[in-house]
Measured scan of single mutants.
Amino acid sequence: SELMNSSKLIRMLEEDGWRLVRVTGSAHHFKHPKKPGLVTVPHPKKDLPIGTVKSIQKSAGL
């Protein structure tokens, strides 16, 4: 199965306009000026399962 580095996923979010608002432990929480909701990324993780990545991307509207 495909894995993604959390840094790469965070870069994709930031390029889309998401900004880090809070860190709780290894959970990084992002908000967007125009899009609704809060997106949480486990970080640092070298090997996020593709299912997790897809669900984060979906929440972020990517």
Results as ranks from 00 to 15, higher is better:
His32Cys: 02
Ser6Phe: 04
Pro33Glu: 09
Gly61Leu: 03
Met12Pro: 00
Val39Cys: 04
Arg22Ile: 12
Val41Arg: 00
Pro33Asn: 08
Trp18Gln: 00
Ala60Trp: 00
Ser7Asp: 14
Ser6Pro: 03
Val23Ile: 13
Lys34Met: 11
Lys54Leu: 06
Leu20Val: 11
Lys58Trp: 05
Lys31Tyr: 08
Ser26Leu: 14
Ala60His: 02
Lys58Gln: 14
Arg11Ile: 09
Met12Arg: 08
Glu14Tyr: 13
Lys46Met: 13
Lys31Asn: 08
Val39Tyr: 01
Glu15Asp: 15
Ser55Ile: 08
Gly37Asn: 06
Pro36Thr: 09
Met4Gly: 09
Ile56His: 01
Lys35Cys: 04
Pro33Arg: 09
Ile10Phe: 02
Pro33Ser: 08
Gly61Phe: 03
Lys34Trp: 13
Ser7Thr: 13
Val23Ser: 09
His29Lys: 10
Lys8Val: 15
Lys31His: 08
Glu15Thr: 07
His28Tyr: 10
Lys46His: 09
His43Ala: 03
Lys8Tyr: 14
Leu9Ile: 11
Pro42Lys: 05
Asp16Gly: 05
Lys35Phe: 03
Ala27Leu: 15
Ile56Leu: 04
Ile10Gly: 01
Asp16Trp: 03
Glu2Lys: 07
Gly37Arg: 06
Pro36Met: 08
Asp16Arg: 03
Leu13Tyr: 01
Asn5Tyr: 06
Gln57His: 07
Leu38Thr: 15
Ser7Glu: 10
Val21Phe: 10
Thr24Phe: 08
Gln57Ala: 10
Gly51Phe: 09
Gln57Cys: 14
Ser6Asp: 01
Thr24Glu: 14
Ser7Tyr: 15
Ile56Lys: 01
Gln57Glu: 08
Val21Arg: 04
Asp16Cys: 05
Glu2Val: 06
Val39Ala: 04
Gly61Asn: 06
Ser7Lys: 09
Leu38Cys: 13
Arg19His: 09
Gly51Gln: 14
Val53Ala: 05
Val39Gly: 01
Lys34Val: 15
Val39Ile: 11
Ser26Ile: 13
Ala27Ile: 11
Pro36Phe: 07
Arg11Asp: 13
Leu20Asn: 05
Thr52Asn: 04
Met4Phe: 10
Glu14His: 10
Val41Leu: 05
Trp18Asn: 00
His28Thr: 05
Gly25Pro: 14
His43Arg: 03
His43Val: 02
Leu9Phe: 03
Ile10Val: 05
Lys46Gly: 10
Ser1Tyr: 03
Lys34Tyr: 14
Pro36Lys: 11
Gly17Trp: 02
Pro49His: 07
Leu3His: 12
Leu9Cys: 05
Asp16Val: 05
Leu48Gly: 01
Trp18Lys: 00
Ser26Trp: 10
Lys8His: 14
Lys34His: 13
Glu2Trp: 06
Lys54Thr: 07
Val53Gln: 05
Trp18Cys: 00
Val21Leu: 07
Asn5Leu: 07
Ser26His: 11
Asp47Thr: 11
Gly25Arg: 14
Gly37Ser: 05
His29Glu: 15
Ser7Asn: 10
Leu48Gln: 01
Gly51Thr: 12
Glu2Tyr: 06
Pro33Gln: 09
Gly17Gln: 04
Val39Lys: 01
Arg22Glu: 15
Lys8Trp: 11
Asn5Phe: 06
His43Glu: 02
Arg19Tyr: 12
Thr40Ala: 12
Val23Asn: 06
Lys8Asp: 15
Lys58Tyr: 06
